[in-house]
Design a protein around this nucleic acid. Structure first.
Lengths: 248, 248
DNA sequence: GCACGGGGTTGACGTGGATCAAACGTGGGG
DNA sequence: CCCCACGTTTGATCCACGTCAACCCCGTGC
């Protein structure tokens, strides 16, 4: 892209986000919205925010007033308890929403941290509620998004409660793969934005165990790993690992 | 209660649920609702359903059209995967909502099973969406309830991902205790509606491990257990167990 | 070039909880 | 009343993963 065009776009950012010509529309907005309604939504999503790798989008304990749609980049959310233990509760990528945890008590209950340079659209929540009273499809879409988060969490609970280490990692990689695919990237080759330690925290494992599982998958020809670069060689094999392993 | 009165009430049930004089109002509805709005809500929650112990309220795969408010009784929700493994994702008691998982895909993603004879109010979801477009406080309350479910799930993920067996059981018992207390029952003495096996499934443990943890708590004077009857003797001790145990 | 540091890998060993197995209430039915 | 079935307790053993520690790889700065 020529630099003058990039500069022109940069000047606009922070002023106008323009859902109407955002290429993520299908991911974070309902399809089939009337042009007129889309204009209203444009007004709703008025501010963007850029974050560098390592920046906090919000912290546990901070007051809640907006949810965020990820325009580009990669995030993790984590919760921590007094004694220092923490748990990564999710990884979020382009087109996904962050901040839903804050609605219940007007205060964020987890930290959201950028794992690479990222850009988000801030959506003031009270305005979202207002608009979703007018636009049925927006309301319903939002309810679906919240519900999907609940279902996703149940999947993670299943993973943490019943799966063994290699199954967990396989499930994790297949999930990532499928999400990359949905965004038009290769489902077979991608690089991880998170460390072994962060994967371990998410999966309820220690980083050494994660590392060993990676090595084992590589030995068995299921995938090729080099640092954070992953190339899936045998999707079916990974999938079989997930279900076929134990009787109990 | 005289039997003729009971019979009269029975006749009404299934026809009219009447939130306006339901003693759970503060739990499942926002406070401070206008009388006029309350009347509309009464119309919304028009059908009740009685379930016996062991009955399914809904099953994974069934079409979704209502959420349910528990009027009395006790439920569990669980998900299961092909190979036979399953995981209890939650226990729900009076005043709590069931069915939020179904919104995302119009199909229930888990089973909801009564652990004792129970009674629920069915709330047709499309009507709830319609009414929450009219009543701001109802809309906001509903969003809070969904968000609270997400936060709760994150807590369970934390539990499954980082806690050891005794911490998990302590956290579980303290959570139950606090919920009984919120409903006006004794926080110190109650009986469990679920088996050791179901507790284990929820906590990611085997029933033997749950049983041993109970025995250990009893040895240490933290509680008295007899079958499903639990009496908490040392709340502070249980709470300390939860955080103070490990460094990692 | 070399030293440094942080993430990642690998090995040896320890342990918490799973597994297997047996015995023990307790409550319901004949 | 006894018997049976099922949930629970308890013990003995096993094993997957955690822990501890050494080493490696690769990028960065001097």
């Amino acid at each position: 892209m020529p630099t003058n065009v990039a500069a022109a776009r940069l000047a606009l950012e922070g002023v106008k986000a323009a859902c109407s010509n955002c290429n993520l529309r299908e991911l974070c907005l309902p399809i089939g919205i009337e042009p007129e309604d889309l204009r209203k939504i444009d007004e709703l999503v008025s501010t963007r925010r850029r974050l560098k790798r390592g920046d906090y989008l919000y912290r546990a304990g901070q007051g809640f007033e907006s949810i965020y749609a990820i325009r580009s980049g990669f995030f993790k959310t984590d919760v921590l308890i007094e004694d220092g233990r923490d748990q990564v509760t999710g990884f979020q990528m382009t087109g996904e929403l962050l901040g839903l945890d804050g609605i219940s008590s007007e205060v964020h209950s987890c930290n959201a941290i950028a794992l690479e340079d990222s850009e988000v659209c801030a959506i003031p929540f009270s305005q979202l509620e207002g608009l979703s009273r007018q636009i049925h499809t927006l309301q319903h879409h939002f309810h679906k998004v919240m519900s999907r988060e609940i279902v996703r969490d149940h999947g993670v609970m299943m993973l943490l409660g019943t799966m063994r280490a290699e199954e967990r990692l396989a499930a994790f990689l297949l999930n990532l793969s499928q999400r990359f695919k949905a965004r038009g990237y290769s489902p077979a080759e991608f690089n991880l934005r998170m460390s072994r330690d962060e994967i371990g925290s998410y999966l309820g494992l220690k980083l050494e165990t994660v590392s060993r599982a990676f090595s084992r998958f590589q030995e068995e020809g299921l995938l090729a790993v080099h640092q954070r670069r992953v190339r899936i060689l045998n999707t079916a094999g990974l999938r079989k690992l997930m279900t076929h392993h134990r009787g109990s």
